[in-house]
Amino acid sequence: MGIISVENTDRLYWLGRYSERVYTTIRLFAASYDNMIDSALADYKEFCRRLDIPNVYKSGGDFVRTYCFSTEDPNSILSNLTRAYDNGITLREEIGSETLSYIQLAVYAMNKAKDSAAPLIELQEVTDNLLAFWGMADDSIDSENVRNILKVGKRVERLDLYARLHMPREQMRREVHRLSRIERTQLKYRKEYLKELNVLVDSPEIDYYEVVSKVESLLEDHA
């Protein structure tokens, strides 16, 4: 089994989280935006509330541009993609140039979308590249440990986002089940929280707030 430094473990985990955050928020944003078309772009406030994003936007139009592409807004999709890139660029020898190149391509696509007259269409290219990134990670990263840590980051992020958005039970269950991959890593995590997450998603009324709390504290060293 290969060895991984503490720092790289952290970066792998956060690369997984940020790339998933970008992927899922683009998808959710696109769906919400579609609703906003019929509701005078007012639904963005609900979107912000659920994702715990401060509503600093002046209007629906401002939200669309700023939330997607602002370099100043730390919650923007572009800021999250930049964080994914910042983690990825330091992991070339762990994940390989080929895998890393898809994060780079996502950054280029994001910048292209930023300047586009039809940004939502262009964001498709960002998600395409992120999917290719995950495909390449699965296909070409030799170290199972590296793959697992990366994917734990992805699963934690997705479950966190799904809980915030009150996604249906079946999707919540599936994500909690996928998180069991964490047992295959040597990451320090709170086993009792994983058990509790399983109970929470099976309970008659899912306590989404509690799910977010547990998933955010699941890992001991990577908060």
């Binding site: 060895i3 430094s5 330091t90 070339r92 020898e93 390989g96 140039s97």
Partner: peptide
């Protein structure tokens, strides 16, 4: 990082 990848050395 590229030489680490290509030589199989750990980048630290």
């Amino acid at each position: 990082s590229y030489l680490a990848e290509k030589t199989g050395a750990h980048l630290v």
